[in-house]
Amino acid sequence: MIKRMLLSLAAILWVFIVNAQRKAFACTPEWLEKIEKIAPDTPVTQPKKERTVLVFDKFTGYQHWAIPHVTAVIQLLGAKSGAYTTDVTRDLSVFDPSILEQYDAVVLNNNCSIHPRRNQILDMLDEDKSLTEAQKIKKAAQLEAHLLNYVKNGGGLMVVHGAVTMLNGSHVFNQMVGAAFDYHPPQQGISLELAEQGHPLLEGFEGKSFVHVDEPYIFKSPYEEKNFRPLLYMDTDKLTKKRKPIDEKIKYLSWIKRFGRGRVFFVSPSHNAQSFEDVRLLKYYLNGAQYVLGDLKCDDAPLNNK
């Protein structure tokens, strides 16, 4: 009886914690001050030269409430550590090669597109009533190609959480990122495990798992190819309210990979800004940024080659 009561109390407490960790709040100066206090003072490796990052945080589909927080965190990490400077935009014109070439890396921040088409570039071009449907399709293909070529030719790309859906209907974009989004069960407590002890990008976790509240993303092709170096994973047996059976016990939620001469970092955490109140995640984001910028050298050979 006592054991059952304790288990019930623990379950109630966990529900309270989960609800608290998913509660939305504004990105205030007070919150940013709290983050700045714990953010790394220096990068894990010194930049080879002055680096500039472009954050694109426009969305057309689902609005993640933490978008402003993610953008602010990326700016803060670069400014405090000296690893890079940051520009922010929501303008499609940035995918012009003459603009992209000014940046060492692009960060796609939760750029969720409208379902089921899943093409944010077309979503945004729909706002231009002067274009015919054929012109929109042609221009969307050109802008996507500019981004793909930018990375192929050596640019860095950091894809944060819902940004995996930005061009989810594009096989080439999915190949570049490493996966396409399928669905996710409801938000819940997730234990992120380290896929490779001792990997330089994971040094901030000090060999321990990272528990937080998030949407556990499930991916589809080309995820099955495992054409990436996995860094964080979850145990799908521990997930609740799964919409359908999951074919693998281990599902990766963050990885790095090469695309042509460029570097890609996909990081699913976090849907909620509360997760950034842990210095370990801040270090992970900074390390990932330094990887795509080309300053943090590490093994990024894909899993399917190991």
Rank of each mutant, 00 (worst) to 15 (best):
M5F: 12
A10M: 05
A10L: 13
A10N: 11
I12T: 12
F16T: 08
I17G: 06
V18D: 12
A24Y: 06
E30A: 15
K34I: 02
I35H: 03
I35A: 10
P47T: 08
L54F: 13
D57R: 00
A66E: 11
A72V: 06
V73P: 07
V73H: 01
G78E: 08
A79N: 11
Y84Q: 09
Y84V: 06
D87P: 03
F95S: 06
S98G: 05
I99L: 12
Y103D: 04
A105Y: 02
N110C: 11
C112R: 03
I114L: 02
R118G: 00
N119T: 09
I121W: 01
D123Y: 00
K129W: 00
S130K: 14
T132G: 15
K136W: 03
K139R: 15
Q142K: 14
L143K: 05
L148P: 08
Y150K: 02
N153M: 06
M158P: 02
V160C: 10
V160I: 15
G169T: 07
N174T: 01
D182E: 11
Q188T: 03
Q188M: 09
G189Q: 13
E193A: 11
G198H: 09
L201V: 13
L202Y: 08
G204E: 07
G207N: 12
K208Y: 01
V211H: 14
Y217R: 03
F219P: 06
K220C: 07
P222Q: 06
Y223N: 07
R229N: 10
L232F: 02
M234K: 01
D235C: 10
D235I: 05
T236C: 14
D237N: 15
K238I: 03
K242E: 08
K244S: 12
D247K: 15
I250G: 04
R261C: 04
F266M: 05
S268G: 01
S268D: 02
P269M: 09
N272M: 09
N272Q: 07
A273L: 04
F276H: 05
E277Q: 13
R280D: 10
G288D: 02
A289E: 06
G294W: 00
C298K: 00
D300M: 07
A301G: 10
L303D: 09
N305M: 10
N305Y: 03
K306G: 12
